[in-house]
Nucleic acid binder design. Structure first.
Lengths: 131, 131
DNA sequence: GTTTTATTTGACTGATTGGTCAAGTAAAAT
DNA sequence: ATTTTACTTGACCAATCAGTCAAATAAAAC
């Protein structure tokens, strides 16, 4: 068997999901992920293979939820706007999810998430500052 | 007066808009913008001040169109997902636009643009390659 | 023609990016 | 107790990032 893993996949995926949701895919750096998870780069890469692998783990895990929560909708948005047109693998995940949907108002739900995320007309942006 | 500008603002803004629409804000590099416009960094910075200034020029110029075309909708999406929550200046532009809208289905239109951009269920992604 | 002003040029910078890997460590297997 | 296996550690890397600026250039003003 060898050494035991020092982390719980589910927790790590949840921590990474929070980041991807807040900052998007390109907006989230490996350093961000290292800080948020408490793992180091080597562990993250041996577990997920690549940054895209980390995102896909988040997307797959969250898509299992029913009904979809805000985190999952926002991961779908990030996938569709940043990854779907460049990555076959992510495209397939999202396409398979979309094919199963029969609700006619997916677009509306996606759009509502965009509006919610944008913080428009609320004025609570931080002018680029990060904690 | 001094030396004349070697470019037409409108054309440069249109060229930059195409890039921001295709690759998003963070996904578009200064090198990309230099290549697409034919201008060099110094010219771009003396004209627009910053990368965000370049994006804002694109957004402002496109929002004058009526009715909004796909490019403008996509710029709004990019703004809302990548900039609005971190940049007061971009937030104000989008907020002012949004306040003037009285259509009840903005969310739906935004969502349709997300779906259109995602290339889902069409399979024509390029696995990350760039021309 | 000389000076002044505005723009272009592109090499350069320090910071940050995603990703690697040899060495170290902890557990199981023998 | 020793070996083997699996995971962790973090320094390191080449590439890329947004942004700068002194020097060169072109036009207007005189």
């Amino acid at each position: 068997m060898g050494r035991k893993k020092s982390f719980d996949q589910h927790i790590v995926v949840a921590q990474m999901s929070t980041l991807f949701v807040q900052r998007g895919f390109e907006g989230t750096s490996l350093d961000d992920l290292v800080t948020a998870t408490g793992l180091l780069r080597g562990s993250l890469y041996s577990e997920f293979g690549s940054k895209q692998g980390m995102f896909m783990a988040c997307l797959k895990a969250n898509l299992k939820k029913q009904p979809l929560d805000d985190v999952t909708w926002r991961l779908l948005l990030v996938a569709m706007l940043e990854l779907t047109s460049n990555s076959q693998a992510v495209n397939e995940i999202v396409s398979q999810w979309y094919a199963k949907q029969n609700s006619p108002n997916i677009a509306t739900q996606l759009g509502q998430q965009v509006l919610k995320h944008s913080h428009i007309l609320s004025g609570d942006n931080d002018n680029g500052k990060r904690s």
